[in-house]
C-alpha cells in the first residue's frame, strides 16, 4: 500500500473533471469494435489448441470444396488441351487426305460422313448427360461435407463456451451486456473461419495441382482458366468465413444467456 504522492495526483487528474463518475447521466455501457477485435484475436492466439480444433473443420471442408472446384477447372483445361490437339491432328489428316485422294467420287462417302457426325453427336450428348450427373453428385457431396463441418464447428464452439462459463460470468459481473459476449464469440469465429478457409484453400489447391501435374504434365497449367479458378477461391474463402460465422451463432447465443451468477460458483 505504498504509492507516491505524485501518482495519486496524477490519478486525481485523470479521473477528475468530466470523467469523474457522471452518475446523474446514465452513461452508456459500450464495447468498441476495436477492443472487441483485439480481445477476440488474443483469445484465438492464446487458446490456439481450441482454435485449431474448431478451425480443422473449416480447413477440411474448404480444402474439399477447393479440391472439387479446382478439379473441375483443371479437367476443363485438360479437355480443352486434348480437343485442340485433336483438331490440329484432324486438320493435318484432312489436308493429307485431301491431297492424297483428290478427285474421287463423293456420293457414298458423304452419307458415311453424315452418319459419323450423327454418332459423334449422340456420343457428345451422352457425355454431357453423364457430366451433369457427376456435377450434381459432386455438389451434393460438397454440401454434405460443409454441413458436417458446420456442425463440427458448432460442437467445438459449444465446448469452448462451457470451458469459459466462469469467464463469461465474470465479464457480465463487470458490466458486459449479452451483446458483448455474442460479439466476442462471433468475431472469434470469423477470425478462425478466415484463417481456416485460407489454409484449406491452399491445401486443396496444392493437392489438385500436384495431382494434375503428375497425370497430365506440367504443361496443363497453361490451359487452365486462372480467372475462373481465382473466382472460385474467393468464393470458397467467403463460404468458409460465412459457414464459421453461422455455425458460431448457437454457441454465442448460449454463452450470452449464461447467468452472471455462474461466476460466483466455486465448483468447476
Amino acid at each position: 500500500m505504498t504509492i507516491s504522492m505524485m501518482d495519486v495526483k496524477r490519478l486525481a487528474e485523470i479521473s477528475g473533471g468530466g470523467g469523474r463518475r457522471a452518475v446523474q447521466v446514465q452513461a452508456q455501457i459500450s464495447l468498441p469494435w476495436s477492443e472487441a477485435v483485439r480481445i477476440s484475436i488474443k483469445n484465438v492466439i492464446l487458446r490456439l489448441g481450441r482454435a485449431a480444433i474448431t478451425g480443422t473443420g473449416i480447413v477440411l471442408g474448404i480444402a474439399f470444396l477447393t479440391y472439387v472446384w479446382s478439379d473441375a477447372v483443371f479437367s476443363d483445361g485438360v479437355k480443352r488441351a486434348a480437343l485442340e490437339q485433336e483438331r490440329i491432328l484432324a486438320a493435318a489428316t484432312e489436308s493429307v487426305k485431301g491431297s492424297a485422294v483428290e478427285g474421287q467420287e463423293s456420293g457414298a462417302s458423304a452419307a458415311e460422313e453424315a452418319q459419323e457426325t450423327k454418332a459423334k453427336l449422340s456420343l457428345q450428348q451422352q457425355e454431357a448427360a453423364a457430366e451433369e450427373e457427376r456435377g450434381a453428385r459432386r455438389a451434393w457431396l460438397v454440401v454434405m461435407a460443409l454441413l458436417v463441418c458446420g456442425i463440427g464447428i458448432t460442437n467445438s464452439m459449444l465446448m469452448s463456451v462451457t470451458e469459459r462459463f466462469q469467464e463469461i460470468g465474470t465479464m457480465k459481473c463487470l458490466g458486459a451486456l449479452d451483446t458483448f459476449v455474442v460479439r466476442l464469440f462471433l468475431i472469434e469465429a470469423a477470425v478462425i473461419g478466415c484463417l481456416g478457409s485460407f489454409v484449406g484453400l491452399v491445401i486443396g489447391f496444392l493437392f489438385v495441382m500436384f495431382f494434375y501435374s503428375i497425370k497430365a504434365g506440367f504443361s496443363v497449367m497453361a490451359k487452365v482458366s486462372w480467372p475462373q479458378l481465382l473466382l472460385y477461391m474467393l468464393l470458397a474463402l467467403l463460404i468458409g468465413a460465412a459457414l464459421s460465422l453461422i455455425s458460431a451463432i448457437p454457441p454465442a447465443v448460449r454463452a450470452s444467456r449464461m447467468p452472471p451468477a455462474a461466476a460466483l460458483r466455486t465448483e468447476i
Partner: peptide, 15 residues
Amino acid sequence: HELAWQRCHTIGYIF
C-alpha cells in the same frame, strides 16, 4: 442495460 450499468459502475466484485 441499466443492470449492466449498475454492475459496471456501482458494484465491484471479488470472488
